[in-house]
Amino acid sequence: MRGVEGIERELARMRLRSDGLYDLRASVLNLLVVADEGLAGEVSEVISRLSGNHPSRSIILITDSGAPESRLDVQISTMCNVPGPEGRHVCSEQITLHIEGEPARHPESFADPLLLPDLPAVMWCPGEISLDAPGFRRLAGMADRLILDSATAGDCGRAMRKMAGFVDEPGMPHLGDLQWTALLPWRSFIAALFDPPERAPALRELRRVRIEHRPGGLCRALLLAGWLASALGLHPESRKRSGDAREYDLSGGVRLELEQLGSDAAPPRVLIESAGASFEVSVGRLRIREGSSVTERAVRLEAPGTGDLLGEELTFFGRDGAYEAALKVAAEL
C-alpha cells in the first residue's frame, strides 16, 4: 500500500459490502495519537474500546527518530460494533504508522493528509511528552484539542508549569489533561456539598484544605488544590516542603496541605474545614461535621480507567476555563 491514496482506497474497499454497495461512513472526529513503541499495544486497546462510542478516524503515529534506517510501516483496520437491538452500528477506522529514522522527525507530513476534512482533530499523547520536542508544535498545531496525561511526567511540578505556559501560546490547541478529567466526579461531588444555601458560607470561612494522595497522584492532587483555590479566588503566599508533605499558606488565611499516602492501598482523601464545619471526602465515604452533628454516608468516587477518561475528553470541545485556571494555580504550588 503506497501513499495516502492507497490508504484511502483500502479503507473504502473495507466498507464495500457483499451486495456491491458501500457502507455509509459516519464519523464525528479525527483522533491523532502520538506514542512510542512501548505504548503501542495499550493505545490500540484503548482506541478499540472507544471506537464503539466515538466513530472516528484514529491515526496512530509510532515514531522512533533515533533509528538508523528510515522506514515506514502502515497498518489499517476498520472496527465495527455488532448492531444491537436499536440498530446502532458504529464503525471506526484506525491507521497505524510506524515511522523510523529521519521521517520520524516530520510526523505532521504523515498526519496532515490523512485527517478527515471538516471534522475536529483531537491529539492524544498517552506517554510522557516534551512540549519542547522538535516538531511537536507543528503536529499539535493541526489539532483542535491536545490531551496529555500529566501523571506520566517525571517531574509533576515542572510539567504543570510547562502546560500552564502552553495554554496561552497563540496557534496552539486547547489543552486537556486526563488527571483533570479523573477529578470530574470529585469536583462535581465537592461542588454539590456546598449547594445548600446554608452551607455556601462555609466556602467563605474556609480554614484548611488537606489532600491525601496516592503515590503517583501528585499531579491530580495539585489540580484539585488548584481548582479549589482558583474557584475561591485564593493564591499561594508561602510554601514549605518536608519529604512527601507540602504545606502552603493561601491568601485569606487558608492552610493547604498535600500529603502522599504510604501505599496505593489507602484511599485518597480530601478534608475541607471551615469555621463551623468540616467535610471529609474519600473514595468510599463522606463525613460531615456541622456544629455538634456528624453525618456519614457511602459515596462512589472510584477512579475511571484511561479509556473512560479519554472518552470523556472526546465529548468536550473548546476551551476549559476552569481547568486552565486550576492549572495556573497548580503551577504556582
Binding site: 469536583r187 461542588a191 455556601a200 466556602l203 481547568y323
Partner: peptide
C-alpha cells in the same frame, strides 16, 4: 446570600 463559586466549572 452566598454563591457557590465551585459551580463556575462548566464541565460539572
Amino acid at each position: 446570600t452566598f454563591e457557590n463559586t465551585l459551580r463556575a466549572d462548566e464541565r460539572l
